[in-house]
Design a protein around this nucleic acid. Sequence first.
DNA 1: CCGGTTTTTGTGGATTTCCACAAATTCAAC
DNA 2: GTTGAATTTGTGGAAATCCACAAAAACCGG
Lengths: 411, 411
Amino acid sequence: MSHYTDPFRGEFDSLEEFADRVSDVLKCPVTIEDANHRLIAYSAHDDYTDPARTATIISRRVPEKVINSLWKQGAIPALLKSREPVRVPPIHDVGLGSRVAVSIWKNDEVIGFIWVLETNRTLSPEEMEWLKLAAKAAKNKVLQLYMRKNKKEERVQELFWKLLTSHIAAEDEIRAHLAAMQIPTAPQFAVVVFRFAADLIAEMERQISYLLQTTQQLPLLLYTTDGRDVILLAAPKTDQPLKELNAFIESFAAKMKERFHIHDVQCGFGGVYGAYRLIEKSYREALAVLALKEKLGDEIKSVYGYAQLGIYQFFDFLLEQKRQGEWTNPALTKLQSYDQKHHSDLVKTFETFFDHNENAQETADVLNVHPNTLAYRLKRIADIAELDLNDMNQKIKLYIDIKLAKYEARG
Amino acid sequence: MSHYTDPFRGEFDSLEEFADRVSDVLKCPVTIEDANHRLIAYSAHDDYTDPARTATIISRRVPEKVINSLWKQGAIPALLKSREPVRVPPIHDVGLGSRVAVSIWKNDEVIGFIWVLETNRTLSPEEMEWLKLAAKAAKNKVLQLYMRKNKKEERVQELFWKLLTSHIAAEDEIRAHLAAMQIPTAPQFAVVVFRFAADLIAEMERQISYLLQTTQQLPLLLYTTDGRDVILLAAPKTDQPLKELNAFIESFAAKMKERFHIHDVQCGFGGVYGAYRLIEKSYREALAVLALKEKLGDEIKSVYGYAQLGIYQFFDFLLEQKRQGEWTNPALTKLQSYDQKHHSDLVKTFETFFDHNENAQETADVLNVHPNTLAYRLKRIADIAELDLNDMNQKIKLYIDIKLAKYEARG
DNA sequence: CCGGTTTTTGTGGATTTCCACAAATTCAAC
DNA sequence: GTTGAATTTGTGGAAATCCACAAAAACCGG
């Protein structure tokens, strides 16, 4: 244990062997992860591990909730900033015992981590120094994996683009390709597109990739980028795929903001399908959502899925129709001219009423008027526009025409 | 007063003179009407007339409510069947005193009526015979008017067709033509089309024309026919034109049924416009309503106006889109397959719910289920289709897709 | 036929809506 | 300014909705 010997010098056949060596030296269980918290290797001769480590080994990746708490607690940010070992106090919530970690660097990029679980002892400062040496020694081995993975990823991305552009039509062929690349199949999937404010630079892409890799909410089969867009093939597991996808997107956006201070992420996803040849359709739909968001802004702020676009799905068609034919809604025209003449807000009232699901209370609150006022205005609208408020059909038409007018104005 | 003199032999300059003569002979006020109850002439030297006669003379036509009661009471049907005079007892509701009437015939067609108001005397049988002679004597004079009017009508119809087909574009020119034919202008109008079960034969056309002529609910500017269709240019007077038009159509259909036993009359009307060049558009819209009715049947049974078609206005367009693109609503698909598998009625439930304006009570009644059942099903629908029941947008989309599927199935 | 799930119906009470009417306020035009 | 119409707000009671819970009833696979 003198400071001029490097216990990690020499060749190791595998990272497993290396992990065992580190474990031997430090007399603690050791795990080695890549930059995305995927398990690369772990020491085998340990009598005790905490639940977090067990789970990591079982699933070959660090559980998301553990990663989350390590972010919150500050360990991961620290590891990403410095080459010094970091001690993490126990976090009982997620079954994490006390441990020490160090990041593995290649130039100025983190490519992995070594974790040392302090089972019933505490590493001495000297041992901490050794850990630093271990991180340096691990670099080359980890890098090899990293390179190999990147190579594979390139080929996979190429396949993804073929799917996104419908360059392979035969379902069998697609299945074969996926199998060859060890990409799991899934009964249903959808294309998700995140669109950032500017073209993606390497640094940012790494952060995004990191976030996606560590997400375990829903399996991500394929991944690629295109200018400002990050494109994913996500495979929801339950029979409520839309909920899953929405939750995933919300959490992704939240993490982007909180960890990397990146706001301004738009997102859309297409239909959930079960046939691979429909990937292209799902992609088109995802792009359609984003295009609509650009136009409509707030109107559909919290909508991500094409399926949830509702009537906006066919707004492009309608607008085209409207522009070529003489499409007028006399009812709307009357209301508009009434509004103009009397400085009233009938159109907006109706729109808001429908925006809030015909809920009187809610609408009145939003408009800052008495519920009776709302009722009065609706009656007025019915009179002026000769609209039968009991006829959903007519109401829908008016609503669509109002939205369409807005859409047209911006479009 | 002997039976071998005809007091109406000889020449009369005008029908007015003739009316006076009849009045002199029978010692009662006399009015002469054409087949459509328009006033042609009336005797002048009368000291007493009842309110019905006064109104007739003022407006130069028999008030509609009087016509109605004469139909109900049976006088007009009798006059149309026989050449014998008919005595009508007083009908106080409409200000009608006791009177005797006879129809004026040309071949086997009624071309007018002579009315004799029995002010303070009752016609004797012999006087009734004289009245028959008067009817015969009036024939030629009335016929002249009738011919002249028909000639004019032909030219007017020609003009109407020009308008219906947009053969005259300049507003001024149209206005000039109308003025030349003494057709009143109107600030707003719409094209109404009645479509009968079969091509119109002369007899039926006469009945229709009669009904339209005697309608005073709303001014009818122009009239023509085309195969099974009767085409009108109607000019609503109020600022609730749709209500007027609907009422007119309902009452027309009711009278058709009740007086002439003609069912199976479809009807549609186009938009209400103020510019003559839009007559063609209104006509196209009226035809669109009829075409949709053919397809959708019950769905829009009680809708006549294009404006009230609501979402169906753009169904043709949507259908086209649906057919060429891959337009699927996964939510609907899921519901349908659920229905199939479990023999349930989720789609129909949702549709009915919306058909009845999202009214729980009403819908439950129509479906013959407990309101709680309805609530349960809706929650189930939300789960299965991943539909947010608080999001009007999504609900509308589903509703439209349901209707569109129906429409497609029939179209 | 059983056992479990899904669906339907029932109950009761808190909450909300609906409606009619009236008072107060605003607005516009004379 | 005044006047009258249009609009907003307030009030109260009947009706409807919402919700949670529970008991039936129907359905389904073994």
